[in-house]
Structure formats: C-alpha cells, structure tokens
Design a protein around this nucleic acid. Sequence first.
DNA 1: TTGTAGGCGTTATCAA
DNA 2: TTGATAACGCCTACAA
Lengths: 366, 366
Amino acid sequence: MSQNSHNQSSHPETPEKPRAGAQEVAERAGVSVMTVSRVFSGSASVAEKTRQRVLEAARALDYQPNIAARALRTGRAETIGFLLQSPGALLGHFHSQALAAFESVLSKHDLSVLISIAPEGESYRRWAHDLLRSGRCGGLVVQSDEISERQLTALRKIDAPMVLMNFRPDASPEDFGLTTVGYDNRGGTEQVVRHLTALGHRRIAFISGTPTHHDAIRREEAFIAVTCSMGLDVPVDWIRSGDFSRAFECGAAETEYLISEQGNGPTAVICASDEIAMGALQCARRCGIEVPRDLSIVGFDNLRASAYTAPPLTTVEHSGFDLGLLVAELLINQIENPRTPPTKHVLETRLIVRESTAQPHPDRNH
Amino acid sequence: MSQNSHNQSSHPETPEKPRAGAQEVAERAGVSVMTVSRVFSGSASVAEKTRQRVLEAARALDYQPNIAARALRTGRAETIGFLLQSPGALLGHFHSQALAAFESVLSKHDLSVLISIAPEGESYRRWAHDLLRSGRCGGLVVQSDEISERQLTALRKIDAPMVLMNFRPDASPEDFGLTTVGYDNRGGTEQVVRHLTALGHRRIAFISGTPTHHDAIRREEAFIAVTCSMGLDVPVDWIRSGDFSRAFECGAAETEYLISEQGNGPTAVICASDEIAMGALQCARRCGIEVPRDLSIVGFDNLRASAYTAPPLTTVEHSGFDLGLLVAELLINQIENPRTPPTKHVLETRLIVRESTAQPHPDRNH
DNA sequence: TTGTAGGCGTTATCAA
DNA sequence: TTGATAACGCCTACAA
C-alpha cells in the first residue's frame, strides 16, 4: 500500500514530497543518478567529497534505495527464507533461539529474513523452489528435523545458497550434497549414559521422541549403541517411542509403563527431551516414586524451566543460539562464494548434572 | 544469487532454459504478455480457455511471476514486517504462537512475513520507517510490549498498514490513532484475586514483571485496583517488582523475601508470569514451605509446562494463537481498506485452577 | 476479451 | 572518478 505522506523528519529542511528517488537525490547533490547508485551500493569508488554531498542530500530527502528495483535489476534477492516444517517448530526454544541469532547476523549484512511455514500437502521441493523462483528469496535455511530421504533428494536439485538445520548428520556431506548443521546427539547421549553408569546404574530405560524426528532417532540410536557397547542389558520394551509434540503426556504415560514392573523396572530413565522428562517427573510424583532416590531421570535440551523442576533436572545442553550463528555464517559464505562445496557441522553438547540423578537405591539395585 | 540450472521437474517437457519470463510463457501459449500477466495477477477477466493455455505453458516452463518486478511496478510490497523488540521476544511462547498463526493466515493471502528484531540504539520510528520506505514491507506488525509513549507518538506519524501487538490498551484508539491488540490483563487478574478470596485468602502478595512491560504494568495495576476495591489490605512491600527476562530467578528471590516474615507473611502470591511462579515454587520447596497448604501460588500465561510443575500451577490462560489470527485479520483489512479507522481489541483470558491454590492453612489465617 | 506502448527505480555497460 | 543509456520483468493505462 504505502500511502505516502511522511513529512516529519529530524532534519529541518524536509520537503512534502512523497517519495524521493535516486533522481531527486542526484539533482539535489548536483551529480548523476549513477553516482547516487554507487554511493548506496558501495560498488565502485566515489570521491569522498561527492559521497558526502550525496549522503547529505539523501538524508535531507529521506531517501532509501528501492529494494524491489534493485532486486529486479540485479536478479539478486537480499532476503533469506527461514523455512519451518510446522507451526509448532517455532514453539521449540531451539528454533526460536536459532532464528533470533540468525536474524541478528543477517541484519548486519543487510539481509532480510523471511519466515515461511511448510504449506500442508505441498512438496518440500516445490515450496523451496517457488520461494527462490519468484525472486522472494536469494537463499534458504531449511529446518529439517523430520525431512525424509525422498524430500532430501529433491532438495539437492535446487541450486541456491542453502543450509539444512538439524538434519541427521550421519552421512558425509558429499553423500547428499547439502550443507548441514546439527548437534552431537550421540556424544550427548553417551555422556548421559556414562554419568548414570558411573553412579552405579545398570538398569536404564529410554523414552524417545517423535519417531521421524532426527534428534529422536539419533538419541535413540546412540542410546542403544552405547548401552550395548558397555554391556548393559536393555530389554526391548524399555525403549519407549514417544512424541515431541505431546511430550509431557507421553513422558508421563511411558514412565507409568516403565515403573509398573515393580522392583524389576529400570533405576534410571533417559528422556529424549526435557519436556518428556517433566512428564516423567510428574508421573513419578503421582505414583509415589521419589526422584532421584527411587528413580533417576535425565532430560535433553536444558530448557530454562529445567533448573526449576522438582527436583531440578539433569540434562544435556545444546545451544540454539550457536546453531543460528553458524547457519548464518555458512549461508553468507555460500552467497559470497557460490561454488563452495557442501560441509557438515556438528555442534557440541554438554551434560548438566542437577538433582534428578543419583546413585540407585540399594534395595532396587543388584 | 540464484544461479540458474534447475532442469528437473515432474513435468516431462521441461526445458533447460534458466528462467522463464512472462514473454516466453506468452509465446508458448500463443498470447501476449499482458494476458499472462492478467492470468497471474487475477486482475481482469481472461477467457477460461486462454487461461488454461497460459497456465499450462507456465507449468511447462516452470514460470513464476517475478515478485520484485511486480513490487516495483505496483509500488506495493507483498511482504509484512513482523517487528520484535528484542531477540528474547521470540523465546516467549506467545510471540512464537502469534507469529505462527500470523504466518499461516498471511501465506493464504500470498503475503510474506519478514522478521525483524529491533536494532540496538535505533529509534523505533526510523526502524519501522526504513522498512517501509525501502519498499521491503507493505505493512507492519509491531510487538509493543515495552514501547514508550514517545516512541508511540513517533510511530503514529507513519502512514501504512500497521497493528500494535500487545500494547497496553488503556486509551481509546482515537487517542493514539493506531490499531492495537492485547489481552484482558485486568480481567484475568481480577479472576485470580476473586478465586483466592473465595478460598478465604485475605493476605495476598504480587510479584510483578519487567516494570516497563505493559503486561506487567497492567497486571500490577489491576491487582492494586481489585484488592483495593475488595477492601484487602496489601502492604506496599508485598508488591514486588520483577523482571520477565530473569523470571525464574526473580520469582525465587522475591518469594524468599515474602516468606521471610514468618507467620505474618502472605498466604497467597500472584505472579505476573508462570515462569516467575515456577521460581516461586522452587523457593517454597527449598524453604520447606508446602504449596498450596502453607502458601498458594498463581501464575499467568498457562505455559505447557505449567500443568506439570509440582504442584501443577493455577494460572491464567491467554492464547497467542488467537492474537496472531486477529492481528493478521486486522492487518489484511487495513491493506484492503487503507482508510479504516484505528480500532482497539482486547482478547479474553481464562482462569485455570490447578493444585497450587487452596484454602489458607488455619494456623496462618486470621 | 485481448493487445500495444511506456515506465516503475535501479544497476551494468560503456564512454569520457 | 563520473555520466549517459539501456534494460531488468511486470502492470497501468488505453486502444482494438
């Protein structure tokens, strides 16, 4: 819409003119439009004195280069799409944190961030493709927590700056030809298991997340691999599948199942997220199971609330903020060097020990 | 960047051409570019048969109208800026929810959502103004939780579709000339106080949020007004100022202060947010104060975790999702009817009674 | 219902 | 270091 009737500016000599273009600025500064263009795009060299005159004229006229004209002319969109798989994705603290960090870096590079949530029933590829093709975006960040192999293959065909955020990074980047960033879920899980075994636990259960979610898959895989390599015996029904979108409920329900084998159940439960762990905590409380005396519970994510649960939760920290910074950096690099080969990045995680874990109670230990 | 080398499409007859324009589509369909334009902008009527031919040609060529050219020509940006006051704003579940809802509505109208976080040390007005002036945005949603009167006055001068999200709606819209949407903090607070007095509480304290935050201000004002009108005596130091950005810590610290007056302290504490209440809950637990027997605690927000605290939290629910939907609706209306007078909207809140509130313990009651 | 001409504001190219 | 010119792809007139 942009109805134009701005006529207040901190500058005294403001005109009533609705919208100044490079032409007006040029006239006022006594130069050509090209010089104005050069000053604002920073492309070629302009004599310092001329530059100042142009800038002054621009300020007086409240001039801003028209982004649409620029995009049309250069064929480059100064906007990066941040693609989320579902509306719920925004509610997770990690994507929010990543987005905030991402935006802060991009805005410093005069790049805008466009948010787009996956339209129901449309292929990932078409969605991403359309954003690029219409000129809306010059690059993409794709939240790929639950992306399938097929969708991934389709995405590879898209030739534009792109970073996959939180794709399960088990293959090498050459294998799928895309730059990815993710957490070291395996390392985090291993730290948790070692922490528990060091306390003396041998009977450890696992409550997983959404079965298609890469974080859940990786954490579960790692749990199995690590417990196995340590010679721990984990009954198959101690690995419970869960659902991140109904984390609390599911944590409670699965915990109820696990503690039903009185005296024979696990002495510790590792949850694929802190929210699941909070559900587990409530279930234990309701059933009269004391944490950590009767049961140790561990989460994953280190939400802010996790230091304030009863008892405070032992968990694995990983920073969405760092993720966002890294994604921004990689994307900008791809824009500046279009032929950069894809790379894979794994961010560190850190075990935070609080009060929800302790030695197993002697009565329940072997 | 958009290096063009897409050459895979579900359609068989895909060309190697990098990027089809309306011209190519027109040729292929045997019509003029104008007809193509009409088909895609839906502006004028086109014979159904022609329309189909054009659509088919477009599909074959993978044509998408160039958004920059359109914006340049029409002077209309099909992008709406969603302006946040701080990176932290994204972490609150309400803004995330609102954003998700907002995006879902806008995308149905072929409008894009641009995220922008307030640059440090730049005036609100300039920030908003630049986004509009550069043609990046055709309208704005401004998160105004902590906007000052001065900034507000400056914003009024901007003439573009705009909605203020969560501005303290105590003046009538004509007074400040801007459309605003917010929650009924007063009503919510009143419900909480009535709930507590109905249980028999007479000694009620309040832990507020960030002093400049409109929600905190309104909730605190409402608390004072309601307790006063009910003849409750609230010592001045029972109204504690807080900080939403350090909510947990501050909830714990202020609660510690409040319970230090053993036997003479409040029997109930109302917190300006659930996170503050979680801090309060932890403090009580640490100090051996049993909730709700010795102290009732109420929050505000109904976070998902609030049903899983120990004990589950009595709180006030308000929907960020509904907020986002309403904001979208109002903004679209302003775009379609540029001269719509500003309006003010207040969303309902709802008391959720859980287990953190109960009758005051006889020993501590008068 | 369809086509023709022109220009939106910027930058690439070439010349001075 | 600066300027003139053309073109980016689309849409608003108007004419047919």
